[in-house]
């Protein structure tokens, strides 16, 4: 492994620490906007403790100076205590853990679809620049990007579900829900499509997929624009470069030049964005989950917010921050893998 790669990786991994601290610090700063009584709920692990708020305040020094509180809170977070969510009567950590699979499932389908479709559309848009196809795809992308996700979701629901009874909201139909609750259906991952395959239950698989259609469509329509634009401009940037002329000068046909050289170089820029997009999806699509009643962490956070459930919302924000940090790390590592200039230094 080249020495500059070692340096790059080490530096990158070390950078995670201050960033994580920074995220925690920011959320902590938000907690300081609350009164000690409100903050007490961040330290509670189960419902019995709600009675003894004053004890909690004393125990964790919630009326002491901020910097002291930071360390107490930090130690709680590190132990996994994110507080008690009164909106659903569970510890915040449990709530997030139980709801994360739903969000993950949504992201599992929406992210690859969005990324692949975006890359494809961006590519043909760039190759056929200024033709009808280009204008058409660009128009679609502006429309998709400008669509409010909640409005698109509602319109789709109104049309398909309201109009034709298709694609009802929720993750599963009532019969499937009932089945899943029983012991017959073993939950391995929490992702219904994956579990259905593992259980060899194709009826549930189809039902879960059926319920994924509209939310995935909503997410894709809106986000594909982003990937498409970056891919398009990335490709256009590469097409003007000398190595492309040189490749043509070698006698390579246009298709090979585009597929083998231009696209590969253009994809490098798209990697970062794809990583961020996936992270965004894993952070819970608050709006989409709410509209389609997909009980993921976004749905949970939205309801918690309306009820001013502080620990829930803050815990959710914290989780989101971490997801992004990890995603950025993975993206940077990917870069080191695909770009020989970084890999071999």
């Amino acid at each position: 492994m080249g020495s500059s790669l070692k340096i790059y990786l080490t530096r990158r991994l070390l950078l995670v620490i201050p960033t994580v601290l920074g995220v925690i610090l920011l959320i902590f700063a938000v907690t300081q906007l609350f009164t000690p009584v409100q903050r007490a709920s961040l330290y509670i692990r189960d419902i019995k403790q709600v009675k003894s708020i004053d004890e909690i305040i004393a125990k964790y020094g919630l009326d002491k100076p901020a910097y002291m509180q930071f360390f107490t809170w930090l130690s709680q977070v590190v132990q996994g205590n994110l507080g008690w969510s009164q909106s659903i009567h569970m510890s915040v950590l449990d709530a997030l853990m139980t709801r994360f699979p739903a969000t993950a499932e949504l992201a599992l389908y929406a992210a690859p679809l969005t990324i692949l479709l975006g890359i494809y559309l961006g590519k043909i848009s760039a190759v056929k620049k200024d033709t009808a196809i280009d204008h058409f795809t660009r128009a679609l992308s502006v429309i998709g990007w400008s669509l409010p996700s909640f409005w698109l979701g509602i319109v789709l629901l109104a049309f398909f579900y309201g109009g034709f009874g298709l694609f009802s909201p929720g993750r599963l139909s009532p019969w499937a829900e009932a089945l899943v609750r029983t012991g017959e259906f073993k939950i391995y991952t929490g992702l219904y499509t994956v579990d259905a395959i593992l259980n060899l239950n194709f009826a549930v698989l189809l039902d879960a997929l059926y319920h994924l259609v509209l939310p995935v469509a909503t997410l894709t329509i809106i986000n594909v624009a982003l990937i498409m634009r970056v891919m398009r401009s990335s490709m256009l940037e590469q097409i003007g470069k000398t190595y492309v002329v040189a490749a043509r000068a070698r006698g390579l046909d246009e298709k090979t030049v585009i597929d083998k050289h231009v696209t590969k170089n253009a994809l490098i820029s798209v990697v970062t964005l794809s990583g961020l997009l996936t992270a965004g999806m894993l952070s819970g699509m608050v709006i989409t989950e709410t509209i389609f009643e997909f009980k993921g962490i976004g749905y949970f956070a939205a309801r918690a917010a309306t009820q001013l459930d502080i620990p829930a919302v803050l815990g959710f924000a914290l989780l989101t921050g971490f997801i992004f940090i990890i995603a950025n790390l993975i993206v940077d590592l990917l870069y080191a893998y695909i770009d020989p200039r970084i890999r071999l230094g």
Partner: peptide, 15 residues
């Protein structure tokens, strides 16, 4: 590092 909506939600819960 945070998506706009989520961070805004955190602030709104405080305010």
């Amino acid at each position: 590092a945070f998506p706009a909506l989520i961070l805004a939600m955190a602030f709104v819960v405080a305010f």
